[in-house]
């Protein structure tokens, strides 16, 4: 592949190989992700249970402060599910931007495919989410939401989220490697995100600012594919269509970007 003749088909093929090679190294990223989570909580008494407590504290505070005038049935459950998805998504987005820069010693010292780092991040998120997920389920049961067939659909929603994460991680990590300012833009946006995403509010009418934020914020739909099925609060086809489309587009973009930039990344991180 000479550099002088950029060819989309070549980039795509190279990107696909990169992703496939990363998948076949799953022993590596599963082991590293487990170590990462262990390291973060080593020497603390509660260990990763802090993730659960952190989630419960957040959810509790939101419910107590905002439950009045929320206009939502079972506001507690609404917040519980929304916050669970949001915390993990925002975690992924903020970490992704620094992913390749943070792994520079590995990138410069091994021949592991770059996608390994994206899968490792996904795995870390899964482990973390399993703790806050326990809190979420506990909270739902406490608030009187009993398991029902809708939860299966919510699992499908979670699966779409998990499958989207590596693609988003690759895209953001590549951008962050070449354009260091992206890190600051993204971390600021994500701090705002908790307010402009429908986690503890619901759009009342159709022409309010809230309605605009609700409809044009892609995170909304990732929250809704889990939240609507659990709360049984309405049709969910629309949200599934949008999130599946985002997932597919993210993967196409990720494969192109990793195929196009994979050999330059070692020089910029």
């Amino acid at each position: 592949m000479p550099i002088s003749s950029p060819n989309f088909a070549d980039w795509f093929r190279a990107g696909l190989n990169e992703v496939r090679a990363g998948l076949s190294c799953r022993d590596v990223w599963i082991a590293l992700a487990n170590e990462d989570i262990g390291d973060q909580h080593r020497k603390s008494i509660l260990g990763p249970l802090w993730l659960l407590l952190n989630y419960l504290a957040f959810a509790g505070a939101f419910v107590l402060i905002f439950h009045r005038n929320s206009g939502v049935d079972n506001f507690g459950a609404y917040v519980a599910v929304g916050l669970f998805v949001w915390q993990n998504l925002s975690d992924v987005v903020t970490r992704s931007v620094r992913l390749f820069v943070g792994e520079q010693s590995f990138i410069k010292g091994t021949t592991l495919p770059l996608s390994v780092y994206a899968f490792r991040l996904t795995m870390q998120t899964l482990i973390r989410a399993s703790y806050s997920g326990l809190g979420c389920i506990g909270l739902l049961l406490f608030l009187g939401v009993s398991p029902n067939p809708g939860w299966l659909l919510a699992c499908l929603g979670l699966l779409i989220i998990v499958l989207t994460i590596p693609a988003v991680a690759i895209v953001l990590a590549t951008m962050g490697a070449f354009l260091p300012d992206v890190e600051f833009i993204v971390s600021n946006l994500m701090r705002l995100g908790i307010f402009v995403t429908p986690i503890f509010w619901y759009p009342a009418g159709n022409d309010s600012v809230r309605a605009l934020l609700y409809h044009y914020n892609p995170f909304t739909y990732f929250l809704e594919i889990v939240r609507i099925p659990i709360l049984g609060s309405g049709p969910v086809i629309h949200a599934f269509t949008i999130t599946t489309t985002i997932m597919v587009l993210a993967w196409i973009l990720a494969i192109f970007m990793i195929g196009r930039f994979r050999r330059a990344i070692v020089f910029v991180v």
Binding site: D27, L32, E35, G38, R42, F106, G109, T110, L112
Partner: peptide, 22 residues
């Protein structure tokens, strides 16, 4: 760079496994 990837908190034995996987 033979020191790459060794983790302070993991035991020597675990580090052998990790390094081997890498």
């Amino acid at each position: 760079n033979i020191n790459l990837g060794f983790r302070r908190n993991a035991t020597g034995r675990r580090n052998i496994v990790l390094r081997g996987l890498i």
